[in-house]
Amino acid sequence: MKAIGIAAAVLLSAVLPFIVPAYYLHMLVLTGIYCIAVTGLNVAMGYTGLAALCQASFMGIAAYASALLTLRLGLSFWLAAPLTVVSVALLSALLGVITLRLVSHYFAVCTFGLSEIAFIVFNNWISVTNGPGGIQDVQPPARSTTYPLSLIDLSERLHYYYFVLILLVASIAFVVWLMRTRTGAALVAIREDQELAQAQGIHVMRYKVYAFVTSAVMAAIAGCLYAHYLRFLTPEMFTIMESLSMVIVLLIGGAGTIVGPILGSAINVVVPEILNVVPEHRMIAYGLFFIVFIIFVPGGLIGLSRRIFGDRSGRTAQSAGATRAPVAASR
């Protein structure tokens, strides 16, 4: 039954470009790319409970790196993109080792700082990133020279859609597989109760770094795809607000579930299209929905917070201040 559902979903996304009006193909590609990044965020935030507010920054770093490697060094996309993804993985591992000592909102504030730093670099390292002007003329991936593949031209939008779709399906399949392994169980255990997980012999730090890097790698894949699809980049595309948007999209769709990122990304694109609203109205609606969601959805409220920061049930509003640890640093 489940297999049928999955097959139907994949089939549907494969024929979708022929069902919807041509205009929407562009939206579909962007949704697919966005969905890869949010799927990554889901590993860190949804499954492991890390409030990482810098997903768009990793995406941005990868987008800039891949664009610059192809433009300045003349590397082919097929070399530049994997190089970029590996570099972002190393960078996120390094940052993870340093920052994941922090828990709860201290980690959140820290990643907020990281994303500010990334934005300032994009905006001010003018000799490399061209500052606020951004980068133009990023080339789509070159045609492969091997015969059957040479027919695939990724400068064509439809082909790019399938390229994105394959990577999206691969990312989702990876997460499904990951969550069935012991590693996945360890991640959920950390989300549910970090201290208990540690007591059971789970190397909390190692698994957190693992989740953080996985999440960043998916952001990096999305970033490479984004750069070579849109063909221009500006710092404004990767601000902290973009990272926060991804968090909201993930929570709207359902954090810690496989379909959550897909659902959230789809809602993010489809609903404003249908309602045909100005962006400000949509943002206000998102914000209000988000606040109401956090306050009123009982499972959302309790489940979410427990997922994100360990079990603190049993605490009442009154005793919260009384028992709050002064600072929760690394243990």
């Binding site: 959140a108 926060l244 909201i248 998102y286 914000g287 606040i291 917070s305 603190r312 009442t316």
Partner: peptide, 19 residues
């Protein structure tokens, strides 16, 4: 009783107020 929810609410508030 759940400070992280406060952080999340404040993110929602930024969206509402700035827009």
């Amino acid at each position: 009783h759940e400070p992280i929810n406060g952080l999340m609410i404040s993110i929602g508030l930024i969206y509402v107020m700035e827009n």
